[in-house]
């Protein structure tokens, strides 16, 4: 325990790096997922081809290899060096974005046809329909899977430790090497990863609850910390009358 308390600042700074890479990677993945996912629902063939091309390419690529490629191959192919953190964010964002795009596409396609017909009867434009009706309804459907993807992305950030970034995993390795306290060094990292994951889960639950409340699927009374720590009721996820 003393081992860990003494090194808390080191672990916290590693955790900070891990969290920053997670959030940047998630932001990139989110933007890619939304744009590509929406392209995949269009009637335009070219748009759909772009969407398929992206998802098929980056779903099948290991984020680790992609990161290595950007960190080591790009400097040889071009006159540019890529910052290791940037390489990791790019690799993780592209990879997770490909999974996210499928989630977005499926959620948009799951919005009932009757809702679309109501927007036509109100003469809404494609953009207005998407903005006001399709995305808000699809959003509630996307969030649970997005939550899983964010956790996966967070855990995958450990790959940056392999190209010299002092993230949580790297800190643990260095402390083990410096002190030989293998058990303490890695247990500390596990605990901090767990705490970060819990923070992300609670954040995602908050978003989910808000989304479900907006669809009138959750009673306003179901609040409080305890409610946040358990999964939303099954009916709130895909069910409910729509």
């Amino acid at each position: 325990m003393d081992f860990f308390i003494d090194r808390l600042p080191l672990y916290l700074s590693g955790a900070g790096t891990t969290l920053v890479i997670t959030l940047l990677g998630a932001a990139l993945a989110f933007v890619l997922a939304m744009v590509v996912g929406m392209l995949g629902t269009l009637r335009n063939r070219a748009a759909r081809a772009v969407a398929t091309g992206y998802t098929e390419t980056f779903r099948g690529v290991a984020a680790l290899v992609l990161m290595y490629w950007m960190a080591f191959a790009i400097p040889q192919l071009t006159p540019y060096e890529i910052d290791p953190v940037f390489a990791a964010v790019l690799a993780l964002g592209l990879n997770v974005g490909a999974y996210g795009a499928e989630v977005v596409r499926a959620a948009i396609n799951a919005v009932p046809r009757a809702q679309i017909e109501a927007t036509i009867a109100l003469n809404m434009s494609w953009w207005r329909r998407t903005r006001s009706v399709v995305l808000p309804q699809a959003w509630a459907q996307m969030l649970p899977t997005f939550g899983n993807l964010v956790i996966e992305l967070m855990k995958a950030t450990a790959i940056v430790s392999l190209i010299g970034v002092a993230d949580l995993t790297r800190v643990a390795q260095e402390q083990r090497a410096a002190t030989g306290e293998t058990i303490a060094a890695f247990t500390g990292a596990l605990v901090v990863y767990f705490v970060i994951a819990q923070l992300l889960i609670v954040g995602m639950r908050l978003l989910e609850r808000r989304a479900n409340r907006r669809l009138g699927r959750l009673p306003a009374s179901d609040t409080g910390l305890w409610a946040l720590l358990r999964p939303p009721p099954a009916t709130a996820i895909g069910g409910g009358r729509r």
Binding site: A114, Q115, E117, A118, A121, S132, V133, P136, Q137, R214, L215, G216, R217, G240, R242
Partner: peptide, 10 residues
């Protein structure tokens, strides 16, 4: 419409 088709998010 027969099934009303109100927007549940509004």
């Amino acid at each position: 419409f027969q099934q009303f088709n109100l927007f549940p998010n509004m």
